[in-house]
Amino acid sequence: MDATPIPDAQVALDGVSKEYELGGTVTALDDVDLSLSPESYTAVMGPSGSGKSTLLNLVGALDTPTAGRVVVAGDEVSALSERERARVRGTEIGFVFQTFNLMPRLTAVENVALSLVFDGWDRERRRDRASDLLARVGLGDRLDHRPNQLSGGQRQRVAIARALAADPSLVLADEPTGNVDTDTGAEVMGLLDDLQADGNTVLLVTHERRIASHADRIVHLRDGRVDRIEAA
């Protein structure tokens, strides 16, 4: 491989393509090279269908590329088994979704501790860790509330706390403000900014210029290719 990415990159995509068979071949990503250095803050923008979600799924070890290599925190996820990718998701990556994606029957603490369950932490340590994180996002008094007892902004804060549970090196946020009002969105973005300031690598997918401007760097995707990269 001649186009070897930066060796110390947190995330590196090297000639990555992704094709789907949907009554004909659809190319979602086409030979993308991209690297995120540690503690960087990157936003990905682009119209729908530009390949934003596909990029996020690949970096998040939820999907594997048709061609090329995806390296996250030193692991070549494109070459890992399903089981190893699950471990990478659980320990190296924290997800924040537009629709929160909290477990409806679990309390805030249990939601935050969920990834620790699959990582084999014991119950007491899970609860301690989750309580600390919820306090950090300002929900120290909502530990045992269920998602349906929380507001949209509170839910997204639980989701951010969950993303941090296993102390991952990379936080992926997919339209994190898409389902909350403007003020709450500002709070959520404030939390993400703090995360990055605390040393996390943050990759943010959005279609809103205003949100993307929180990042240091904005990657514009168009038709599955990197259109341009701008420094914010």
């Binding site: 699950a86 998701r89 320990t91 997800f95 969920l114």
Partner: peptide, 9 residues
């Protein structure tokens, strides 16, 4: 959700 936060098959 469980798979995203690290649950294996």
């Amino acid at each position: 959700i469980m798979k995203a936060v690290g649950a294996t098959n």
